[in-house]
């Protein structure tokens, strides 16, 4: 008579049956989720440092050339920047709602909210594209054809222009930072939209439910992080010289 197997053969894995979405190395679904969350946060910490150096470069150059930064900032389109802020905050709302839909086992809801998030993300990029187009037309893109002149609309502005004899050169530093910071932010959004597209297909196939939706949560963390970067970029890049208008 054969003895009882040491490991119960109640599942094809050859060991005790567990949740189909639980990877072997974890004891429980909670532990698995905690592990994903922690790993994602370690990645986000590297992202904080990655964007951090850009904000630091901005701080240093702005302290050295405050007039150029003030006047160059005024050439941006605050309305478009403001609309984009609202669009991005809206996309963060639809992102958490997608996770909520998973938590209440509403499969279609997950897909709807993920599509909405992708749509708002794309809207942001299209508006950003129009802003970039304007900057190219105005020759505000650093390089051989760069040209910047502040409009003499008030005595205050005139005084600022007089303070910096190398205004154009220093303004090009502002625009370099503007393009690098918003460009890398936009790159993050493009990557995010790609990941959301994959999640959309998997959600439609019923891959995520109340018990398991870690990829949705982790992508959410990434998406909200990118939102936070913009929350700082908007006032620091767009609103510097708003009181001079």
């Amino acid at each position: 008579m054969a003895s009882e197997p040491l490991v119960p053969v109640s599942s094809p894995h050859g060991h005790a049956a567990h949740h189909p979405d639980l990877a072997h190395q974890f004891d429980s679904m909670d532990q698995q989720k905690e592990s994903s969350t922690l790993g994602m946060w370690v990645f986000l910490v590297t992202e904080i440092m990655f964007f951090g150096v850009l904000f630091l470069a901005y701080t240093l150059y702005r302290t050295q050339y405050p007039e150029a930064f003030l006047l160059a900032s005024n050439s941006l389109n605050v309305l478009m920047g403001g609309i984009n802020t609202a669009v991005l905050i809206g996309s963060s709302l639809t992102m958490v709602l997608a996770i909520w839909a998973a938590q209440v086992n509403w499969r279609k809801g997950i897909v709807i909210f993920l599509l909405a998030t992708m749509g708002l993300g794309t809207t942001f990029l299209v508006i950003k594209g129009f802003e970039y187009r304007d900057k190219f037309v105005e020759h505000h893109v650093p390089g051989p054809t760069f040209h910047f002149e502040a409009e003499h609309t008030s005595p205050h502005i005139q005084a600022l222009i007089a303070k910096d004899p190398q205004l154009e050169r220093h303004a090009s530093i502002y625009f370099s930072l503007y393009f690098i910071m918003t460009g890398i932010h936009a790159l993050h959004m493009i990557i995010g939209i790609g990941i959301l597209g994959v999640l959309c297909v998997l959600s439609w196939k019923g891959r995520y439910n109340a018990e398991y939706h870690n990829p949705l949560e982790m992508t959410g963390l990434y998406w909200h992080f990118v939102d936070i970067v913009w929350i700082f970029l908007f006032p620091l890049l767009y609103l510097l010289g708003a009181h001079l208008r």
């Binding site: 910490v45 959410g220 929350i231």
Partner: peptide
């Protein structure tokens, strides 16, 4: 607000909160 509510840091474990805070510490 985004961190606490949208990123669910409010309900995260201490380990996760500590990791998140370490990012701002290095910054």
């Amino acid at each position: 607000l985004v961190l606490l509510f949208f990123m669910h840091v409010r309900h995260s474990t201490r380990m996760t909160v500590l990791t998140a805070l370490s990012g701002f510490f290095w910054l």
